[in-house]
């Protein structure tokens, strides 16, 4: 019985966290994620549809990158977030979870806190651009979810990121 109920809880958690969000770790930097697959079906989902998550991810850009041990937004990062804010204001059905990440060059706990700073930097900027704070949540993965695994700066640079992962959409 206990196992069954915890499995049910797990399924419930997954359906909230992942169903509209197949890329829950912000792993898909490339353009070939089948984003529409897990979505709730009401959205065409093609990247050519400007109101689709795929468009947000690929055309607007879902992530900003950071310097080593920094959580200050770069000019490029602010430009990306400007685009995200415009999109979020036009697509008010969506909420988002902003995931903060660090490269592997740091201790586990510190990197969790650093990822939180990065995610919050992106969140705070989106709020200054008019996005309702209640639509944005943050989570830090620290160094737990790298997308590139070489132990060189080329990879580290892509791992130091804050990724805006959409959820919801035509939910009501």
């Amino acid at each position: 019985m206990k196992l069954k109920s915890s499995l049910l809880m797990l399924c419930a958690a997954l359906s909230v966290a992942a169903c509209t969000n197949p890329d829950r770790f912000g792993g898909g930097a490339g353009g070939n994620d089948a984003f529409g697959n897990g979505a709730n079906g009401a959205i065409a989902g093609s990247a050519s549809d400007p109101s689709s998550p795929a468009y947000f991810q690929q055309a607007v850009g879902d992530r900003v990158l950071f310097e080593v041990d920094q959580s200050t937004l770069t000019a490029e990062g602010r430009a990306t977030l400007d685009g995200q804010a415009v999109w979020l204001l036009q697509n008010a059905d969506f909420t988002a979870v902003i995931e903060g990440h660090a490269d592997e060059q740091g201790t586990r706990e510190y990197n969790l806190a650093l990822g939180a700073r990065r995610a919050d930097a992106a969140r705070a900027y989106l709020v200054t651009q008019g996005v309702q704070p209640g639509r944005l949540q943050v989570v830090s993965y620290g160094k737990e979810r790298p997308i590139e695994i070489c132990s060189q700066e080329a990879c580290y640079a892509k791992n130091r990121r804050a990724v805006t992962v959409l959820a919801g959409g035509l939910s009501s």
């Binding site: 959580s71 706990e109 969790l112 806190a113 700073r117 919050d120």
Partner: peptide
Amino acid sequence: YSISQGSNT
């Protein structure tokens, strides 16, 4: 333990 809230931990 640590709590992160906003940018602060």
